[in-house]
Amino acid sequence: MMQCRPGCGACCIAPHISSAIPGMPEGKPAGVRCINLDAGNNCLIWQRDDYPLVCQDFTAHREHCADNRLQALQILTRMEDETRPD
């Protein structure tokens, strides 16, 4: 496990989120930036009461997040592509 990098936001862009999230009642498609990210790629709803469970359940690990934001986006996008239902 590792600490999330401030300003990364890769986990808020790459994956598909099927459950409703604040501002996105139908969820979020893969590759679409979450509406709750600010201009600096920081979550605006982090630790609020309406912070989604799916987001709470994500834990940063080096194998997913690598050494920088670009690597994290590439890895998480590849994982999303490899696990997308046919």
Rank of each mutant, 00 (worst) to 15 (best):
M1V: 14
M1I: 14
M1R: 10
M1H: 12
C4N: 05
C4G: 07
C4S: 10
R5A: 12
P6S: 08
G7D: 03
G7P: 05
C8Q: 01
G9Q: 00
G9A: 05
A10P: 05
C11K: 03
C11G: 07
C11Q: 01
C12K: 00
C12F: 02
C12L: 02
P15L: 05
P15M: 07
P15F: 08
P15R: 03
H16F: 11
S18T: 12
S18G: 11
S18N: 07
S19L: 07
A20R: 00
A20T: 00
G23I: 01
G23R: 00
M24E: 15
M24S: 13
P25I: 03
P25D: 04
P25K: 03
E26L: 07
K28H: 06
K28S: 06
A30S: 09
V32F: 09
V32Y: 09
V32L: 09
C34V: 06
C34S: 01
C34M: 04
C34A: 04
I35Q: 10
N36F: 06
L37E: 06
L37N: 07
L37S: 03
D38R: 02
D38Y: 02
A39D: 15
A39V: 14
G40K: 13
N41P: 01
N41V: 05
N42H: 08
N42I: 13
C43Q: 04
I45M: 00
I45V: 07
I45P: 00
I45S: 00
Q47V: 13
R48A: 14
R48M: 15
R48V: 11
D49T: 08
D49S: 13
D50I: 08
Y51I: 11
Y51R: 05
P52Q: 02
P52N: 04
L53S: 15
V54E: 15
C55H: 03
Q56N: 14
D57Y: 15
D57E: 15
F58V: 15
T59G: 05
T59H: 09
A60R: 05
A60N: 07
H61V: 15
H61N: 14
R62P: 03
R62I: 10
E63T: 15
E63L: 15
H64D: 15
H64Y: 15
C65S: 06
C65A: 12
A66F: 11
A66G: 02
D67F: 13
D67H: 10
N68I: 08
N68L: 11
N68W: 13
R69A: 14
R69Q: 12
L70I: 09
Q71T: 02
L73F: 07
L73P: 01
L73T: 01
Q74N: 09
I75V: 12
I75M: 04
L76R: 02
E80R: 11
D81W: 12
D81Q: 12
D81I: 14
E82T: 02
E82W: 09
E82D: 12
E82P: 00
T83S: 14
R84S: 11
R84G: 04
P85R: 01
P85G: 03
D86H: 13
